[in-house]
Design a protein around this nucleic acid. Structure first.
Lengths: 337, 337
DNA sequence: ACCGGAAGTGTTAACGCTAACATCCAGCCT
DNA sequence: AGGCTGGATGTTAGCGTTAACACTTCCGGT
């Protein structure tokens, strides 16, 4: 009822209605214990009546805390990164933080640095980097960032916090599965060499191979896209040496599957294929894809856990590793021979 | 050189170094013309020396403008929504805005309303809704939002601003293509009935069909996922009546393609398939998918155009429609008969 | 020589909030 | 009874910025 508010009500307005000082209202809003129950109720009632909401700018100004964490993300068109962002946002909001996003159209250090710069002027309390590498950290303001920086599912290089899937272990799971089936000539289509994930997955493949005493063929380097998977798949089919392929992500697997089909090679009878990511579609590829699943929600949760402690200054570095899981479908089988 | 800054420098500090008043520094920072070139240079030099960056909280407090736009997005795991967010962020940053993201795990009105509420407390200057419907707008604070709300690529219902692809036109492009090839029994696998995109695409399909004087078969309702496309594809194959299918997105097409293959039906010889979205992988499906491409970057740009004018109060409503484009690949051909 | 005005600069007062300190009033101990 | 403790509340002073206005010059026109 009454008085149409000309502009948003402030602490003062609530205080007047409740018959207390603005400071008491502030205490109620912030959940201080030093308020009599009766007063608290009166204030809460006034808050509701006026539709008061705290002015974050003013709060940020005086507390020097914005309640915002910044996220720099590359490859948001891909399932992995975008799922990671979603997981992170959920975890952030649950902890009372907002998330401002800066996407990275290309992954040059300059672009990364510019994005970080943008976030820093937004006074974010921490930065999460979802990017192939963290070279941007060295440039510009980045070199002396006074806030926690967490690298999410990437090279834990310069940043003091890191949370990520154990890509190497995942790759070993995939490769070992192929080895267990009896394959001896297992090729690998990797991601771009400058992406940490690509390196780690390749390393896992190598490790499993040498552990099994198998020869390590030359790596076919892709760029995560179905298109590159297709091109490399053609080469692979032409060479005709491998009986199994471990592909660094599911998208490239699509291209590979198509190249194999065009070359008249059947999967899994002639060639077995294992992917990485478990995008929701891989279950419906032709044939359904055996792949490695990552838990992106766990990733986001872990990141926020570390970060909240980091923001409070309780820890200055830390890392967390999330284990991946092999999902066996119809694209893998024992070799013919 | 000298004096290790204890905390971030402020206008006052720059002013002292440059030998001017803090207001003059403010003028330089904000690009006011009323500053003598020599003074400007001196100030700029001091800014650089001190590494000054503006405190956005203080600025927001006094100007009542946060420079932030809020985005509520559902379905970020899908190519369309996540691409839209990227396009939007790029456009926003180019215009000096930051983007705070609230993702929607499920699309209930309550969740939408909660997300909007969260953004409103962040004092965003506008809200962009990337969601199946805008029912959340009716709830809570939403009903009286004092800021521009733009619905991006969805039902332009309650919001005063809307930017979107013309889904109906896209669907007509797809269906007409099938009609032109000579198909007479063209089925449709739609998205969930409560998504605007699904409705518009279905409408376009219907319209093309009746325009061509063809019978309109019953719609098969999916949920955007490959999984639902697969299940419905099985039904379709069992019925065996259609010679062509227009599918409301590419993900479901994957499932359909797989179901068709399992049923021994060849694409495009026995059945033609057209998708919607043109995700990067559709070129490598088995077979490569004929589909409708949407320009997500244009979507983001258009949204920011409208929104900046809306924020300035120059317009209070408006909409923009982006035309889609048919991409013909190998999943469509003339019917056998 | 005087005045008007424009260009350049400085001064002051908010913006809405929290932290720190000050005050008040019970209740209780000695 | 007096003073002391501590819980509950109020008062004051900024946080760093911009808006509004005030103040100097300096120039050209009469």
């Amino acid at each position: 009822m009454s008085a149409t508010a000309r502009s948003a009500p402030r602490l003062e307005d609530v205080a007047r209605v409740a018959g207390v000082s603005h400071q008491t209202v502030s205490r109620v809003i912030n959940g201080s214990t030093k308020v009599a129950p009766a007063t608290r109720d009166r204030v809460l009632e006034a808050v509701r009546e006026l539709g008061y909401r705290r002015n974050n700018a003013a709060r940020a100004l005086v507390t020097q805390k914005s309640g915002v964490i910044g996220v720099v993300a590359a490859g948001l068109g891909y399932f992995g990164p975008s799922s990671t962002v979603v997981g992170l946002e959920l975890a952030a909001r649950a902890r009372g933080y907002s998330m401002v996003l800066a996407s990275l159209p290309d992954v040059t250090p300059e672009a990364t640095s510019a994005a970080i710069d943008h976030l820093v002027s937004e006074a974010v309390e921490a930065i999460v980097l979802i990017a192939p590498d963290d070279t941007g950290l060295d440039l510009g303001i980045g070199s002396t960032l006074p806030i926690p920086v967490l690298v999410l599912d990437a090279a834990p290089g310069r940043a003091s916090f890191a949370v990520g899937v154990d890509h190497e272990a995942g790759a070993m799971l995939a490769t070992q599965h192929l080895v267990d089936l009896g394959h001896t000539r297992i090729a690998h289509i990797s991601g771009p060499r400058d992406w940490y994930q690509a390196q780690a997955r390749e390393a896992g493949w190598r490790r499993s191979l040498s552990r099994a005493g198998l020869e390590v063929p030359e790596v076919l380097v892709g760029d995560w896209s179905a298109s590159s998977g297709f091109a490399l798949g053609r080469e692979l089919a032409a060479a005709g040496t491998a009986t199994a392929v471990f592909v660094a992500n599911d998208q490239m697997s699509i291209g590979l599957l198509r190249a194999l089909a065009e070359a008249g090679l059947r999967v899994p009878q002639d060639v077995s294929v294992v992917g990485f990511d478990d995008i929701p579609e891989s279950e419906y590829f032709t044939p359904p894809l055996t792949t490695v699943r990552q838990n992106f929600v766990a990733l986001g949760r872990g990141a926020m856990e570390l970060l909240t402690e980091g923001i409070r200054g309780e820890i200055t570095s830390g890392s967390q590793v999330v284990p991946p899981k092999l999902v066996v479908r119809a694209s893998t089988a024992r070799p013919h021979a």
